[in-house]
Structure formats: C-alpha cells, structure tokens
C-alpha cells in the first residue's frame, strides 16, 4: 500500500470518528436535565414563563431532538459551530480568541516539564538507590498525586500573599503601559505560577518515564561496549544512552500536547487565566451547549489530527511500520 492511500484511509476514518463524536456529545448534552433557559433565568435573578418560552424559542430548544441534532451536525459540516447562548457570539470566534493564551501556557509548561523531568530522570537513573534518586521519586509522587488546584492555591498563598512576588490572577496587568517588551515581561510575570503548577504534574510523568527507560538503556549491550571502549560516564550517558531513552518521552509529549484543552482547565480556573479551559468551565456551568460542543469538537479534532500526524511521522521514521494499514 502506498503512503497516499494510507493517508486517505486514515483521513476517512478520522472524519467518521468526528461525526460520531458530534452525535455522541450532542446526545449526552441533551440527556442532562434542564437547559440554558434555566441558567439565563439564574443569571437574571428570575424570569417568568413567557420569558423562558421566548429564550427556548430563540435558541431553537423547543424543536424535536432529532431536528436539533440534524441541523447541528449539518451546520458543523459546513464549518459553522454556531453562536454561544451565553455571549451571543460565534463559537469559533470565542475559541480562537482564547486559544493563544492556552497554547502559551500549555506549551511553556510542557517544555519546562520535559527539560526538568528528563534531567531529574537521568540523575536518578545513574544512581538508582542514591539519595538523589529517592528525592526525585518523592518529588514525582508528590507532583503526580497533589491535585493541581491545591498546588495552585498553595503557590498563590506562598508567592502572592506571604512573599508577594507574583500576581494572583489574569494574564496581564491592564494598568501597565508600554511597548512590546514591557508587555511581554508582564505576561511572563503572570505566567510563572500557572506554568509551575501545570508543569508539576508533567514533571512527575516525564521524570518517571525517563528514569525507567534510561535504566533500561544503561543496562544494554551497546552501553557496555561504550564503557569497554573507555568512554567517560558523561559521554556514555548524554551522547549514547539519552538519545535512545528519549524516544518514549517524545511520544508521550506528543500525546500530551494533543490534550491541550483538557489539561489546563483547573489551572486556568485557579489563576483566572483567560484561556480555553476557563471558557470550557464557564460554559459547562452556564449550560452553554454550542460553546461546550464547540470546544469538545475542537479537542476531538486536535486529538485526531495529532494522532494522525504522529502515526505518519512514525511510519516515516520506522521502516518496519511502512506498508501496514
């Protein structure tokens, strides 16, 4: 089978999967009792029957389920995610306006976590029973088990309140005037705590993974050969072993990146970071169906495309995978 054909088959699967995701999400949202008319009534402190009926009619919620589902799927197929019930704005516009903030947060946290995680993993793999190794294990356990909203609040209390180094919430200080560099420095200042909070889970993940693969690699034949050749430990670890130990870490990082949207919800909420996570959280609270569905659709799209690309990349890299469907 040639590559083009494989790509085509995969893309067809992906499209089918996306439609299934759409139908499933829409149906599940529909199963939940109550609707946006209730949350609008809540945000307004009450409403009467006429107003509630008007809201339902305005948003087409009084039509039969199948009609609502059909028209939604048709619209999405024409790349129209609809209008937010809550903000009365286009959902794709809302998602795109929030995307940069989330990408900035998640990518920065990922890069930081990969770097720190791998370094910690290597250190502990070199002396698996040493003090430093135990320390790394402890750190990883803590980072992985502590809930992020708790870590976030703890960091806030420590570094915003007791030692006021960093701002509490948001992405920019609107009072600060200045050029690009002043604004960039301000955003960087606001990013420190959320990035550390988000990175803490991933650091745990990457350090454990790189520790395990590193230990495996360090025990392999070619490392023994390198040792016999008379290379220094430093050269063996960083030039020979690490390169091979890194590939599972990169695969994992790829997988994590495709979960961009879901990962940051809690961190964004704690730090009022104006990204997709806060939008998702707020839309769920408000039962803003088009926005929730839009975000879910977008995440599904990212995951599917991400997997497709990973798959193709692996085929290019690894000759053994070529030719398999």
């Amino acid at each position: 089978m040639n590559l083009a054909r494989i790509i085509l088959v995969r893309a067809a699967y992906a499209a089918g999967l996306l439609i299934a995701v759409l139908v499933l999400n829409f149906s599940m949202m529909h199963l939940a009792p109550g609707d946006v008319a209730d949350t609008i009534a809540q945000s307004m402190g009450g409403a009467d029957a006429e107003v509630m009926a008007q809201i339902r009619a305005d948003y087409g919620l009084d039509r039969p389920f199948v009609v609502q589902l059909g028209s939604y799927v048709l619209r999405v197929l024409q790349f129209d995610l609809g209008y937010s019930f809550f903000y009365n704005e286009s959902v794709s516009g809302l998602i795109l306006s929030r995307l940069p903030a989330t990408l900035l947060l998640v990518i920065t946290a990922q890069i930081l976590a990969i770097f720190i995680g791998v370094v910690l993993g290597v250190i502990s793999a070199r002396r698996p029973n040493g003090m430093s190794s135990h320390f790394v294990t402890l750190l990883a356990l803590f980072g992985y088990s502590a809930p992020v909203f708790w870590t976030g609040i703890l960091l806030l209390i420590a570094f915003s309140l007791k030692i006021p180094l960093f701002p509490v919430a948001g992405m920019v200080d609107v009072r600060i005037e200045g050029g690009f560099f002043v604004k960039a420095a301000d955003i960087a200042h606001h990013m420190v705590l959320p990035v550390i909070t988000l990175a803490s889970i991933f650091i745990a993940l990457y350090s454990r993974l790189s520790r395990a693969t590193m230990m495996e690699v360090l025990g392999s034949d070619y490392v023994r050969t390198a040792k016999a050749k008379g290379l220094t430990t430093r050269e063996i670890v960083y030039k020979h072993a690490l390169k091979n130990a890194l590939s599972p870490v990169i695969t994992l990082a790829g997988l994590q990146l495709s979960a961009v949207v879901s990962g940051a919800v809690l961190v964004e909420t704690v730090f009022s970071w104006p990204g997709l996570g806060t939008l998702a959280f707020q839309s769920i609270i408000a039962r803003d169906t088009p926005t929730i569905l839009g975000i879910l659709f977008f995440s599904a799209l990212v995951v599917i495309v991400g997997n497709l690309l990973t798959d193709l990349a692996l085929r290019l890299v690894d000759p053994r995978l070529r030719g398999r469907a």
């Binding site: 806030l156 209390i157 509490v168 919430a169 948001g170 909420t269 704690v270 730090f271 009022s272 707020q282």
Partner: peptide, 14 residues
Amino acid sequence: VMRIITDPAARAIA
C-alpha cells in the same frame, strides 16, 4: 477595572 476572577480563594488573595 473590573477583573473577572471566578475562584473565591483567588479573589480573597487578590
């Protein structure tokens, strides 16, 4: 400036 901060703990710290 009215900042939107939904988390009550974060509001208190601010």
